[in-house]
Design a protein around this nucleic acid. Sequence first.
DNA 1: TAAAAATACTCCATAGGTATTTTAT
DNA 2: ATAAAATACCTATGGAGTATTTTTA
Lengths: 310, 310
Amino acid sequence: MNLQQLEYLVALDNTGQFQLAAERCFVTQPALSMQVQKLEEELGVVLFERTRRGAVPTPTGRKVIEQARAALRAVQQLREVVSVEKGEMVGELRLGVIPTLAPYLLPLLVGELTQTYPGLRVRVEELQTEHLTERLRDHRLDVGLLVTPLDDPRLREIPVLDEPFLAYIAPTHPLYQHQMLTPADLTPEGLWLLQQGHCFRSQVLNICGTRADTDTRPLTYESGSIETLKRLVRHNHGYTLVPELAVLDEVDTNPMLRRFAAPEPVREVSLVVHQTFVRLPLLDFLRAALLRQVPARLHASAAGRKIQWK
Amino acid sequence: MNLQQLEYLVALDNTGQFQLAAERCFVTQPALSMQVQKLEEELGVVLFERTRRGAVPTPTGRKVIEQARAALRAVQQLREVVSVEKGEMVGELRLGVIPTLAPYLLPLLVGELTQTYPGLRVRVEELQTEHLTERLRDHRLDVGLLVTPLDDPRLREIPVLDEPFLAYIAPTHPLYQHQMLTPADLTPEGLWLLQQGHCFRSQVLNICGTRADTDTRPLTYESGSIETLKRLVRHNHGYTLVPELAVLDEVDTNPMLRRFAAPEPVREVSLVVHQTFVRLPLLDFLRAALLRQVPARLHASAAGRKIQWK
DNA sequence: TAAAAATACTCCATAGGTATTTTAT
DNA sequence: ATAAAATACCTATGGAGTATTTTTA
């Protein structure tokens, strides 16, 4: 058994065809066929069913392929450890961000990232928490930027921000009269929400308490973006809750914005990686960059100290 | 990079000398030297400091070796997956058992194990819970037999027995007059305990409550084995608590034994493996064998159903 | 100076390439 | 009939052996 064979195995599973797998491995089809055969022979099991239109893993094959992926991942991590030790910052970074953070935090990061680490290729995916954590768990993403706690022992959370919620209220809405809000003031009437699936939605409902459950509004429109909610309010309809990053540039000037009285409701924004993640300086940089780009009042309470690695 | 190089790397770390590492890998010293050099060259880092008396890993080397071990473990697990799929039961099983279970459960297992799986080499270590879990975590042991819950997300617990505690009382001790005991009856006077470090000791103290803390006994002797405690009682001194397996053959005949009134205090005995353990049929067999050899009243409450594998 | 590691050189196992045949629908 | 995989055969890389030199405490 050797690593090449494991790579061929995984490539064959990914493509489903010897020819395609061979191409993707930059070898000829017989070369890949031979190695897969040899591996099957050595292990004494059939890993793929050969059909007219390619190769389908057997049940045993599936389990072996899964283990092969784990082994190759470990080898990849070895290379990353070396890369980190050499102080390099190269390769690919697959970053996942939730939709209620992406538009506000990513623009703050791209400049620093591309300038500081020109050798680093960053690939961003915008996904809701559920899909993001799933991808972090099975190593389809390297780093997540989302709201914690997640309470998943396989994932490591590095808190970065404690982002306050603010109310964004149309002048026609009764709440507009309040100068300072408490969660108890919030009524379901006129409250705009994000769609199901956004963690931000459940956080808002959490703040409002069970009152928001009794939904008797004549018109409900659940939007996919905070920007849409803001537009609704700006057109003099109802109110909504927004995270402070969504209104950073208008927080002191827009009379429709209201802060909550202390203790302000906040959401904990964290960088999240798999426990086995080894490129820790990269994490440290991302955290520092975020803190640099964001007002200090948003920094997570434990933000003063250096990240405790392991 | 290839698996051979990683094995050489780990062997060199294990032995600390090129010559010895080469011997253990069944190759010549230049062969191993060359491959380690090649790996260093490919990775672009020095992994070992060459000194007069062998090779010492550099700080970077240590991290790389650790990753190499992880990679080789993944490959080993791939082989084990195949072995399991083929229905084989071969190789080595490193089993750790706590001292208060070992003398009572191991004799029940050896016969079945060696007869059912002649190809399996079993290596048993008797260790206290703390050391056992540490070895399970870093893969120096395959299976542990100990008292749960451990609450370690890296380890998987398969409950096997709910083993009652019984009191073993000398006729001269006041407790001898009780026919049925409750934990509230237990006094610190005359209670023999195991040494610090045995989980059984803390479980007993737990049952006795804080009363046992006020230790005013004129003679205290903390033994290393339950058998010694039994001897002390048999020589007409004080009393002790014993797990039922320690008195299985005398539980109905020995007048010095007392059961607790329901709900009987019990300790949960489980098989414990690392979450990544793949030889699940072996676990299943061990569990079944234990249940077969032990009276049904000791079977864990959930023992009826088949183990839920993941 | 003596033990340990590195180097020099040879051999051969084997991964991979090209050309061709076999297989399955 | 035809696309896909397997086989045949050749080449060359590189891993491992033996003999020897270099290093360092």
